[in-house]
Amino acid sequence: MSENNFPNDGAVTKIKSEILNAYHVLDDLTESKVIFNEIDIGNDKERMYYSLSDAYVPLKYIQFADGEVVFSAISDYIDFARDYYHRFADKLFGEEAFDYLFDCLTDKVERFNLTPYLGNQAKEKYLSIFGLGEEVNIPFSNIQDSTIPFKSDTANTNITHSYEELAPDNVYYGTVFGNQIVSIVGCNNAPLQSPTVVDIGLETHEDYRQRGYALSNVAAMSNYLISNGHVVKYCCNNKNTNSIKTAMSSGFKLVANEKTFWCVNS
């Protein structure tokens, strides 16, 4: 997958707006092709803490489909982010750029008593963000009879080891055999009642893979969400070829690439 192989369709603008808002970047700033967003989190301006992963994020950047780049960095690293962009503007997601990023930041974070997160060791990995916003792009032929919608009150047992605690207000789609959910697609952000980009996740039990169940459930969930006015967002790391294949086979288009430098307390 080429790092510059981006589409330019309706899903891009809506997904971009959601991501930029999450970084507190105003819409009137998005005309710029490169945005440097200094993170200010109250009295603690030295670190950006991400509670879901129990880690600190000193620097993150996203390259969108239309060439726009957003850097979000804690105040101490905003100048580093500017220099980094000018050095690697044409190859932000290349191996040379990653080596420079991690070598420099690994040294810098020491004074904050932080260490790079072990998950960063595969430095060439980054997040690929896919979008689907139009019903016409949904491959309805993928939907199998075994795919059904359900909620948290389902009598079926989820054996996928994902979404083990079902949210009471969310709708899920899954492949069911007997009373077992062997493949599931759920939503990672809520509430679904608000018009937004909805991030979906999926998992299939290892004994039931390579049978088209994930494709079936993604298509059914996408149809449900788009029919209710949402754009569907699908994320995976760029090394997960099976997940990328699922996204592309389900009608999704690559919208952006995202790289995060994670740290933990020493």
Rank of each mutant, 00 (worst) to 15 (best):
His161Asn: 15
Asn142Tyr: 06
Phe150Asn: 02
Glu135Leu: 05
Ile148Trp: 02
Val136Tyr: 03
Ser146Cys: 13
Ile143His: 00
Gly131Phe: 06
Ile129Tyr: 01
Ser146Ile: 15
Gly133Ile: 06
Ile148Tyr: 08
Glu135Ile: 05
Glu134Val: 07
Phe150Ser: 04
Gly131Asp: 02
Pro149Ser: 15
Lys151Gln: 08
Thr157Met: 01
Ile148His: 10
Val136Trp: 04
Pro149Ile: 03
Ser141Glu: 13
Asn142Asp: 06
Ser152Gln: 08
Leu166His: 12
Thr147Leu: 12
His161Trp: 13
Gln144Arg: 11
Leu132Asp: 02
Phe140Trp: 08
Leu132Met: 02
Thr154Leu: 07
Pro168Lys: 14
Ile159His: 05
Pro168Asp: 15
Lys125Gln: 03
Ile159Gln: 06
Glu164Tyr: 08
Val136Thr: 08
Pro139Arg: 02
Ser162Arg: 15
Asn156Met: 10
Ser141Cys: 07
Asp145Lys: 14
Ser141Asn: 11
Pro139Asn: 04
Glu124Asn: 13
Pro168Gln: 12
Ser146Pro: 01
Ser152Val: 07
Ser152Gly: 10
Gly131Arg: 10
Ala155Arg: 13
Ser162Val: 12
Glu124Met: 07
Asn137Val: 00
Tyr126Asn: 07
Ile129Val: 11
Ser152Asn: 12
Ile129Ser: 01
Asp169Ala: 08
Asp145Phe: 09
Lys123Gly: 07
Ser146Val: 15
Ile138Ser: 01
Phe140Gln: 09
Asp153Val: 06
Lys123Ile: 14
Ser128Cys: 11
Thr154Pro: 00
Ile143Trp: 00
Pro139Met: 01
Ile129His: 02
Asn158Ile: 14
Glu124Leu: 05
Ala167Gln: 05
Lys125Pro: 00
Lys125Asp: 00
Ser141Thr: 13
Thr154Val: 13
Glu164Pro: 13
Ile138Val: 11
Lys125Val: 02
Asp153Pro: 03
Ser162Trp: 15
Leu132Ile: 02
Thr160Lys: 07
Asn170Tyr: 12
Ile148Asp: 07
Thr147Asp: 11
Leu166Phe: 11
Pro168Cys: 11
Ile143Tyr: 01
Thr160Ala: 03
Thr154Gly: 05
Asp145Glu: 15
Asn170Lys: 12
Gly131Gln: 05
His161Thr: 14
Asn158Glu: 07
Asn156Cys: 14
Glu134Ala: 01
Ile143Val: 12
Pro139Lys: 03
Thr157Pro: 01
Lys125Ser: 04
Glu124Ala: 08
Pro139Ile: 06
Val136Pro: 00
Asn170Ala: 13
Ser152Asp: 12
Gly133Ser: 13
Leu127Ile: 10
Ile143Pro: 00
